[in-house]
Design a protein around this nucleic acid. Structure first.
Lengths: 259, 259
DNA sequence: TGATCACCTATTGTATACAATGTTGCGCAC
DNA sequence: GTGCGCAACATTGTATACAATAGGTGATCA
């Protein structure tokens, strides 16, 4: 039930390449990190891994060997370990002692918890954001939606998924609540893992409409409407997940075998 | 405005001593860590530092030198760095590149944000906890309040403060929302720093009454009442802080000098 | 006497070597 | 043939040595 091989291609020569594209086109795109926790080489590594996870190039359960990563990025294991510890704190990866690092596999219970927490934080935050909305912030959100659309049109589903998550983070940043924004950032990150595991719709993530509606509410500075829209948007995502207990990988053997 | 010397005495021989007392008497007392992020020696170090910060033996701004800590705890700097990075993620310490680790000094803005986040999360969580309350959990909370009382009576203000914060964490754990509990844990930790900096009442933290009232509501499984009590309790703490802008250490020099 | 520059020291950042642990595969016994 | 146990291996945990950087201190010059 674990340890898918590391099948994603990570640029060995210049790890910056992977993020440079989006960074150049949109200055606001800081790879999903509101407040980078690290600096120096390990920050680059952390960003690359985080990006790959957000874009579903690294799937839940994938083992992230220290030697493997240090080879790929041409840094020492010390740097790799620093980055892995950081990602472990963001709950993007599980760090098992003497076993190694694995891309996290949120359980169904954790998935529910994540969306309960989001339901508690994000609607109110959207309300605040609407009230504090400025022309600049609005333009930024509109540009963001356009980028989402472009990515989807180009068939870059991973990038589109990451951008759609980042949309939520930018809203929380506009609300000028960096503490809550940090929490939402973590929740969005885990949501990406949850979607990777439990998404059931055949179609791609269709958040275009919901995000457009939100921006409309923001344009009118209609906090109440934004709050309601965010609430239903989160519910939409949640209902598109298959969180039936049966899809769990049989953690409780006895319950499965003894009727 | 920074770098108070490391004046706290940390047991060098057996770092476990500091936490052993409360751990033995109350099995539920896991030093404030709901889900320990580290394991091994660095976890011990992390726990000791976290404890010292929660009990205000380590004050905001205190520099935590790597060599100093590795001497005190008889571990290598590698282990120390791991613990410091972990604490940095909890925002209990600031890690400044090439400068070192300092016990965090939340700004006034951050202090407000922390309590806004708590106001968003904790009342609803208390509501859930009340509905899910079991006799065991209730007994645990009552024992916790008794421990708070004992610590206060013994003049152990630091311990009392830590326990009063932990009370909130235990409530969130009873609500069976580990994700939200993790957030509340972080918020409580930062609240401890905020109290260390901005507390203005001469008297000690008088949370006895509020916590008792909460337990009463829990006993009756009155979620609505618990929610309201928690809300006003948080407001009480907030109003006991001196968050006037003037007490900031003059970050904006121009505003101060040019009338 | 004051300020500026350069050097020096103290401290952190990184790499590597060694120790410890978990896993896997093979062989042996039953 | 199956199950157990041991041993070799791969991988992570820890310690230490070296490199790099920032801050402080002293000297020198205006």
């Amino acid at each position: 039930m674990d340890a898918i091989t590391l099948h994603v291609e990570l640029d060995s020569q210049n790890p910056h390449d992977g993020i440079e594209g989006s960074k150049m086109t949109k200055p606001s795109d800081n790879q999903g990190f509101i407040q980078p926790t690290l600096s120096g080489p390990s920050a680059t590594l952390e960003a690359s891994l985080s990006l790959a996870i957000h874009e579903h190039r690294l799937l839940p359960g994938t083992k992230l060997g220290e030697d493997e990563l240090s080879d790929i990025f041409n840094v020492s294991r010390t740097v790799v370990r620093t980055a892995l510890q950081s990602l472990s704190h963001s709950q993007l990866i599980d760090l098992k002692r003497n076993r190694g690092a694995f891309v996290a596999q949120p359980t169904i219970k954790e998935a529910r918890e994540v969306f309960e927490a989001r339901a508690l934080l994000e609607p109110r935050t959207a309300h605040s954001a609407a009230e504090r909305m400025t022309p600049d912030a609005l333009a930024q959100l509109e540009a963001h939606i356009a980028a989402e659309h472009d990515a989807l049109a180009a068939g870059e589903h991973g990038k589109a998924l990451r951008l759609s998550g980042q949309f939520h983070i930018e809203i929380s940043r506009i609300a000028d609540q960096s503490t809550i924004a940090g929490f939402i950032e973590r929740l969005v990150a885990r949501s990406s893992l949850i979607i990777a595991i439990y998404w059931r719709r055949q179609s791609a993530l269709c958040e275009k409409h919901a995000h457009h509606a939100l921006v409309d509410a923001f344009r009118r500075k209609d906090g109440t409407e934004a709050e309601a829209l965010m609430k239903s948007h989160l519910l939409d995502i949640l209902t598109a997940l298959d969180l039936r207990e049966t899809s769990e990988p049989a953690g409780n053997l006895r319950d499965v075998l003894v009727p």
